[in-house]
């Protein structure tokens, strides 16, 4: 659905996007993650045809956003990180304005507006003035606006910023529903745990470069391999058993485990020899009742990727 080829964007001397190559498949719920100033909004604005790249190109469903922005606009629904609402306008009138600007015929307009107000749980706010809506409602109304022309790609820049947990959960629910409609959704956010549960794929951007791009499960698996192993025995072992367990780990992995509890050890290092270690411990007669690696959160994964890249840059 999205193909970025050597997409570069400069602001004077500052390089906001450093020739990124990116592929986002159709139907993906794709998280766009990165610290402030990483280039997320710049990339999104280019894809939304609001900005031209300094060099390179981006294709949306095969249409170049540089060569054919007018056609690309019909394929993209864009929701920026601000509301952009008018005073003295009712919710349905707000959507009607944009539908009119998009050239949607009057007959079709009402049906679409009602459908989208339903999707975004705003049907009962149809006649309410936009400036009187809560922050979460305004955000959902803006989402409805971005969906008016039934775009194939939805670009959401920080859709949950400044919302309370309940409003965020509601937004997440709606986005899941939109994902199930087969639309490709590109979401940037700082609230990483939410993206982890919502998104199927992720791209990590930093200093205008892609640090990682792939499926969330792939990313997590990569990181889970590096989480410390927790080993716990059933009941407190005697010193002999404890010594044998530590010697076994030392022999197999070449590291000394850290005894965090009388019956528990924390074993750093990677997971390649996990099966071998477990077999050896069982063969020793150690009563293993817990043998697991922590599940990495996307937030932690993000920090790890950033740290790795920083180190490799040195």
């Amino acid at each position: 659905m999205i193909e970025c080829n050597k997409l570069t964007r400069r602001y004077g001397r500052m390089l906001a996007l450093d020739g990124i190559d990116l592929h986002i498949g159709a139907g993906e719920l794709h998280a766009f993650v990165g610290p402030n100033g990483a280039g997320k909004t710049t990339a999104m604005r280019i894809l939304a045809t609001l900005m031209r790249p300094t060099s390179g190109d981006a294709l949306v469903d095969g249409v170049s956003v540089v060569q054919n922005p007018q056609r690309a606009r019909q394929l993209v629904g864009y929701m920026p990180d601000f509301f952009g609402v008018y005073d003295n306008l009712k919710a349905w009138e707000y959507l009607d304005l944009y539908a009119g600007c998009m050239g949607i015929g009057a007959k079709d307009r009402r049906r679409r507006i009602d459908g989208l107000l339903g999707l975004t749980a705003l049907t009962d706010k149809r006649e309410a003035y936009v400036d009187g809506l809560s922050r979460g409602m305004k955000q959902r109304l803006c989402l409805a606006r971005a969906l008016l022309h039934d775009p194939k790609l939805l670009i959401l820049d920080e859709p949950a910023s400044g919302m309370d947990p309940r409003a965020r959960a509601q937004m997440q629910e709606i986005l899941s529903e939109i994902g199930s409609m087969g639309k490709t959704v590109l979401i940037s956010s700082h609230i990483l745990p939410e993206l982890a549960t919502l998104c199927t794929h992720a791209t990590i951007l930093d200093h205008g470069s892609v640090r990682f791009s792939g499926s969330v499960s792939e990313l997590e698996a990569r990181m889970n391999m590096r989480e410390a192993l927790t080993l716990r025995l059933a009941g407190e072992p005697d010193e002999d058993m404890a010594g044998r367990v530590e010697a076994c780990v030392q022999e197999l992995l070449g590291i000394t485990p850290e005894r965090t509890q009388p019956d528990t050890w924390r074993i750093p290092g990677e997971a390649q020899k996990d099966a071998q270690l477990l077999a050896a411990l069982v063969a020793l007669g150690a009563p293993v009742c817990d043998f697991h690696r922590e599940h990495a959160t996307l937030e932690r994964v993000f920090m790890e990727v950033m740290r790795d890249e920083a180190q490799s840059d040195l």
Partner: peptide, 17 residues
């Protein structure tokens, strides 16, 4: 100022209209 300019622009309405 209202930040609705970009939103209008992406509808393809055009500066003339």
């Amino acid at each position: 100022e209202r930040q609705t300019f970009d939103l209008l622009l992406v509808t393809g309405v055009g500066t003339r209209r």
